[in-house]
Design a protein around this nucleic acid. Structure first.
Length: 429
DNA sequence: CTATAACTCTCAA
DNA sequence: CTAACGTTGAGAGTTATAG
């Protein structure tokens, strides 16, 4: 018992909506939602909006009448703002433990084992909560347990039940009380148990968290997978998942977006693809990687019942790794041409870079990759200019004037934290 | 046959 | 008026393929 670890999961409540509310306090008592790209689906909802019955991921057009009826504030997503706020949150949280795993844009794990002698984790969690509220104006919940999965579950409880006051600690909760909670929470709330798995579990009469916790993990492993086995171990307080503290380069990089409206002509698709290639390439350079495989795919709108469907992807393996945007661009556009068919209303195009490896100046093969020194210089210059004056120059094929494919984003807030001009504009009137 | 590549499915935020 | 439904990443398991 004494050597068991203490893991906390800190998660910002309704993150995107909460970010918007900082800069528009008038939204505070109001039902608010933030939409996904293209103003497609609800991806963040204030408590008031949840209470009105708007579901996570629900398409906008399906609840437009509710929006009108209750005067719900609808915002397009502003990822620049959220990313910046996220960085601030994580920086603050890092002060509370030397061991932090940033798990997603709005949540992180902290290992608090070394603070065990404080013996009052709840008050420590309260400090965390107060700090984030005071410094950034964001509400968070803290869940604590002996494993990551239990910390997640505790966080869920802290969010759902007001009497926890935003903090739930399994470690300090009597065993019989823990059991009661687990018997009353549906198994689908467990981290890693998604739609399909919970359906299967329910069929086997494994309904509550407790049912899963008590189940025979060996049999469950046979019927499901090693992931399920780990989940069960974690529910029982035996850590099966490590805290992943260190930066690891992505193993694949995807850039892909749905269009504002569907398109049939190849040149528009090429234009869009070139822009996505540039996004992917930027990420590739940021993590100092080289790629070996390029995948391009196109899709028609799968929800559109009356149009002919076409979905296809195509892949090419390069003979040697590269990070040359001119090469990537050339190949990707060539691949697009291969799979493109006339007469289809395309809705999405995307690129995936995979087979990534880290660039190493000393590697022999580096000599062969950069045999085109001119290209390599062009890449560097291109990168520098675009960093200095955000995206002022472009590869010709991306420089479309029409940008027909551009996303819909009808009600985006200003970049309050990263752009002085926008900040001034936002509060000018 | 095995080892690996390629592809599919699932989950998460 | 109509039609309108996100993106990115990871990992495990399965199937196809090369040698």
């Amino acid at each position: 018992m004494s050597n068991s670890s203490i893991v906390a999961l800190i998660d910002v409540n309704n993150f995107y909506v909460s970010c918007e509310r900082i800069f528009q306090p008038s939204l505070n008592q109001h039902p608010v939602i933030v939409l996904s790209n293209n103003d497609g689906c609800a991806i963040s909802r204030s408590q008031e909006a949840k209470d009105l019955g708007i579901k996570m991921g629900e398409p906008y057009f399906k609840f437009k009448n509710l929006v009108k009826k209750h005067n719900i504030k609808v915002l397009s997503s502003n990822y620049t703002l959220y990313a910046d706020m996220s960085a601030r949150v994580m920086k603050l949280l890092a002060k509370f433990s030397p061991n932090q795993e940033i798990y997603s844009i709005d949540e992180c794990f902290l290992n608090l084992t070394s603070f065990k002698k404080r013996n009052d984790m709840i008050s420590y969690a309260n400090e965390i909560k107060k700090t984030i509220k005071l410094c950034l104006g964001l509400p968070v919940c803290v869940g604590i347990g002996p494993t990551k999965t239990l910390a997640k579950l505790a966080n869920h409880m802290a969010k759902k039940h007001e009497n926890f006051n935003g903090i739930c600690d399994f470690n300090s909760m009597p065993k019989d009380l823990q059991n009661i909670w687990m018997e009353h929470i549906d198994v689908s709330e467990v981290w890693g148990i998604g739609r399909n798995l919970s359906l299967k579990l329910h069929k086997m009469n494994v309904n509550s968290v407790m049912d899963l916790k008590k189940s025979n993990f060996k049999r469950m492993r046979e019927q499901f997978s090693v992931v399920m086995e780990r989940t069960i171990e974690e529910l029982n307080g035996y850590p099966a998942l490590e805290l992943e503290e260190y930066f690891t380069p992505r193993k694949q990089i995807i850039s892909s977006k749905s269009f504002g409206k569907s398109m049939t002509c190849l040149s528009s698709l090429q234009e869009a693809l070139s822009t996505y290639i540039k996004n992917a390439w930027k990420k590739l350079r940021e993590q100092n990687s080289l790629l070996q495989t390029i995948t391009v795919y196109i899709k028609t709108n799968r929800f559109s019942m009356n149009t002919k469907q076409h979905r296809q992807s195509i892949q090419m393996n390069l003979t040697s790794p590269t990070d040359d945007i001119i090469v990537i661009n050339k190949i990707a556009l060539f691949l697009l041409g291969k799979i493109y068919r006339t007469g289809y209303k395309y809705h999405k195009v995307g690129i995936m870079l995979s087979g990534l490896s880290q660039k190493n100046e000393n590697d022999q093969y580096d000599f062969f990759i950069t045999k085109n020194i001119k290209n390599s210089k062009i890449n560097d210059v291109y990168e520098k200019i675009n960093k200095k004056w955000t995206d002022k120059i472009q590869i010709a094929s991306a420089a479309g004037i029409k940008k027909e494919w551009k996303m819909k984003s009808e009600n985006k807030s200003k970049n309050y934290t990263t752009n002085w001009n926008e900040l001034c504009k936002a509060f000018a009137n």
